[in-house]
């Protein structure tokens, strides 16, 4: 990442226009050409510096059921259990964390019934108890990361 990439990451986390030529507008603010901006975004997406470029939806408002779930997985079984959990399309993210509850994943399904089914399946296939922690209220989502 060079100085222009950092400027792009810092300036383009929010506020991309919904207009005919939004890349040209953003490029003008950064002081580069539209072509260069598009090329740099493509490169940062390719290299994994950016995971995505586009709209972030508040997906709960569009439909579906979402929950955060945690399991206490024995160390010796961890990789095997992670493979089972990751293979499920209902699992959106999965993180290993330092705690007795060491596996944390988000389940995204079409309905609460489907969430219950997915949890039952994970418990059956992994032998681990799933703790389901549905969201009661969201206070804030969406930090800008400075680089």
């Amino acid at each position: 990442m060079d100085a222009i990439d950092r400027l792009i990451v810092n300036l383009m986390q929010n506020g991309f226009s919904i207009t005919d030529s939004p890349y040209r507008e953003a490029a003008g603010l950064i002081g580069i050409s539209e072509e260069e901006l598009i090329e740099r975004l493509a490169r940062m997406l390719e290299s994994g510096v950016l995971t995505r470029f586009g709209p972030l939806f508040q997906i709960e408002r569009i439909g579906g059921a979402f929950t955060l779930a945690a399991m206490s997985v024995p160390k010796a079984d961890f990789e095997h259990v992670a493979a089972i959990v990751n293979a499920m399309p209902e699992v959106a993210h999965n993180y290993e964390r330092e705690h007795e509850l060491n596996m944390w994943f988000v389940l995204a399904t079409e309905s609460p019934e489907r969430t219950r089914e997915a949890i039952a399946r994970i418990e059956r296939e992994t032998g681990c108890k799933v703790i389901d922690l549905p969201k009661c209220r969201e206070y804030f989502v969406g930090l800008k990361f400075e680089v």
Binding site: Q13, N14, G15, I18, V49, R52, L56, I62, F145
Partner: peptide
Amino acid sequence: GIIRRIGAVPNHYAI
């Protein structure tokens, strides 16, 4: 608010 924002999503580990 259905679209929270439009822009770049950095991989926070990578940055």
